[in-house]
Amino acid sequence: MLALYCFFFIFNGAAQIQGEGEVYLKGDLIDPKFQGGGVEKFYDYVKTHFDFSKAKKPGRMVLSFAITTKGEVSDIRIVEVLDIESATEMIRVVKASPLWVPAYRNGNPTVTTIKFPFEFKAIQPTTPAQGTPAQTTPKSEPEVYTKNQVEKAPQYPGGLEEFYTLIAKNYQTPSVAGLSGTIIVSFIIDEAGSLTDIKVVKDLGYGTGEEAIRVLKLSPLWQPAMQRGVPVRCSYSIPIKINSK
């Protein structure tokens, strides 16, 4: 029987925040903030984005990382490993983290290191009563906005021109004489800034659509769209002009 796993954050003082090169006493340091909250907000982010199929067994994992003065996550380490699959997935999720508000000391931003313990626990499936069909609750997907619906549209690092430069440098046009036209690709920029649900809306054939998907998967993280101060999923579409020489 396939067991399902869920992880729980250990809140009993185990999450540690320390400054660069020293441990701060309470009151000396203004803790870093994540999406308007504290470390519990970051736990919610990890719980939402972690692929639980990677967790193969129950147990404990301890993660540490640094928050730079710019609010970026760096120096990610698995201090206590449960297994390679879950550790790799945890690093992937943390690397994709949106920016934090850095810690401050004496009014100046400072580098801090945060240590998180996580515990994976098995969930025992319940057996429905005999003669009673099993009831499943459909999982609701986060709302997807358009660029015109959000307070702040998603932004590619360096601007949209840099995004098109990335495509132009990496797109390999098929060697088909006289092939000319425009393909259209749509995708969703999720709360972490990743490109997901990439689809070819208009294709020219000869592998042009598949090549567009390959290139878009090379994109670094975007700054996600913001709605009411919170990162949200946003749909996007782009035209790519093809002109085979």
Rank of each mutant, 00 (worst) to 15 (best):
I67A: 03
D197W: 02
K56S: 06
I91F: 00
K33H: 13
K245Y: 15
P117L: 10
G71V: 03
K199A: 13
Q155M: 15
L195N: 04
E22W: 10
F116W: 15
G207F: 05
K41A: 15
T137Q: 11
Q130K: 14
E119G: 10
R60T: 08
R60G: 02
V176D: 06
F9Y: 09
P117E: 09
E40V: 04
K70P: 00
T165I: 14
A192Y: 03
K169G: 11
K115F: 10
N148V: 07
V46P: 09
E22N: 05
I76C: 04
K115P: 01
A55G: 04
D31R: 07
K115T: 15
S237R: 13
D203F: 00
P109H: 09
D31A: 13
V201F: 00
T173Y: 04
T136R: 07
Q18S: 12
V93L: 09
L160G: 11
G193M: 03
K57M: 12
L63D: 01
I84V: 14
E40Y: 09
E151R: 08
T208R: 00
V230P: 00
I184W: 03
A96D: 14
D190G: 02
E211L: 11
S219R: 02
P98N: 13
D83V: 06
L2R: 15
L221D: 04
S244C: 09
E72C: 01
S64P: 01
Y5M: 05
T126P: 01
K245R: 13
G181T: 02
R105I: 11
P125Y: 08
D190T: 03
E89S: 13
M90I: 12
T136A: 07
I242W: 00
P142L: 07
E210N: 09
T110M: 06
G209I: 03
H49E: 13
V73G: 00
Q135K: 13
F65C: 01
E20K: 04
I238N: 03
G158I: 10
G205T: 05
Y145I: 02
V23L: 08
G19Q: 06
I183Y: 03
L204T: 01
Q155P: 08
T137G: 11
M226V: 14
E72L: 10
I78M: 06
R228D: 15
G178D: 13
Y43S: 02
P157A: 12
K217T: 09
G107P: 14
I184N: 10
Y24S: 01
V73I: 09
V73W: 02
E210C: 01
S140W: 00
P98L: 10
Y164Q: 10
V81G: 03
L25N: 10
E89Q: 15
A96R: 11
Y164R: 12
E80D: 11
P154Q: 05
R77F: 02
T196Y: 02
K95W: 07
V200W: 04
T146D: 04
V23T: 12
S97K: 00
P125T: 06
E40H: 09
T88E: 15
K70D: 13
